[in-house]
């Protein structure tokens, strides 16, 4: 039975520039599950992800990864268990697609060590899974926005973290690739005993792939629970400050849209 807890938050409080983003937040994310973080612009989705990545410190409360306090992990060690997909990537310097995917192996290698055949095989496998194996020799500057996003996801898969943090995973991807990439990440998480947190604007994407939802409403309030509990027209209309309705599809799925 895969009942290990990957991530847990204990009474976590966060604020940015004096504004309270969340207050005494507690949560447990077991292996194999996906957590969706929803909320209006500026409610702190990205800040929360960066805090989970320990790129910033919380005001109060405790974060545990693999049942060990986040503060006790070294940066190097953390990178072998925790991987993040950022909203934007910077590509000022030339590098090929395969070289970038291989950077996911960086935390797993010692200082003088070169990437071995095994690492290269992992990177190629991830590129193939995202459908960009044919681009491996291309320079990143020649890629389209969608290809770059798929490369970023492939790099994250090559890193093989226990906890995946995704900031707007659907950015630059068309509908087909959004579904395909999230399907892939979800099944990876389920087969590898990992877990996933994604911050997104896309309610329907979250409804489709997330087991738990954290809906930030601003001012430190937050609705949490299973996707079915949290994602209701009432909750969403309140959180986004505009009326949101839903319809049921013929296969019983809820689709949300602004009225």
């Amino acid at each position: 039975m895969t009942d290990t807890t990957i991530l847990s938050l204990h009474e976590l409080s966060l604020s940015i520039a004096g504004r309270r983003l969340c207050h005494q937040l507690s949560l447990r994310l077991p292996a194999g599950q996906c957590l969706g973080i929803l909320g209006q612009n500026g409610t702190g989705k990205t800040t929360l992800l960066h805090t989970l990545m320990r790129l910033r410190e919380p005001d109060a409360g405790r974060i545990e990864l693999n049942q060990r306090a986040l503060a006790q992990w070294s940066r190097e060690e953390l990178a072998t268990h925790l991987g993040i997909l950022f909203q934007n990537s910077h590509d000022a310097m030339p590098a090929t697609v395969l070289e970038i995917a291989l950077m996911g192996r960086h935390p797993h290698l010692a200082n003088w060590q070169w990437e071995g055949n095994e690492d290269i095989a992992m990177a190629r496998e991830a590129l193939a899974a995202l459908g960009i194996a044919g681009l491996e020799k291309r320079d990143i500057q020649s890629l389209s926005g969608g290809e770059r996003q798929r490369l970023a996801i492939a790099t994250l898969l090559t890193q093989r973290p226990r906890l995946f943090l995704l900031d707007e995973p659907g950015n630059h991807l068309d509908i087909a690739f959004q579904v395909q990439s999230l399907q892939l990440l979800r099944s990876h998480v389920q087969t590898h005993n990992a877990a996933l947190c994604m911050a997104t604007h896309d309610i329907n994407l979250a409804a489709r792939y997330c087991d738990q939802i954290m809906l930030l409403t601003g001012d430190g309030e937050c609705v949490m629970g299973t996707a079915a509990e949290v994602l209701t027209s009432n909750n969403l209309s309140h959180a986004y400050g505009c009326e949101i309705r839903s319809v049921s599809t013929d296969d019983g799925r809820q689709i949300f849209f602004p009225a």
């Binding site: 060690e77 990178a79 910077h90 590098a95 935390p107």
Partner: peptide
């Protein structure tokens, strides 16, 4: 590849 990305990779 950028400061944040580098920090995330340890």
């Amino acid at each position: 590849r950028g400061d944040l990305q580098a920090a995330a990779l340890g």
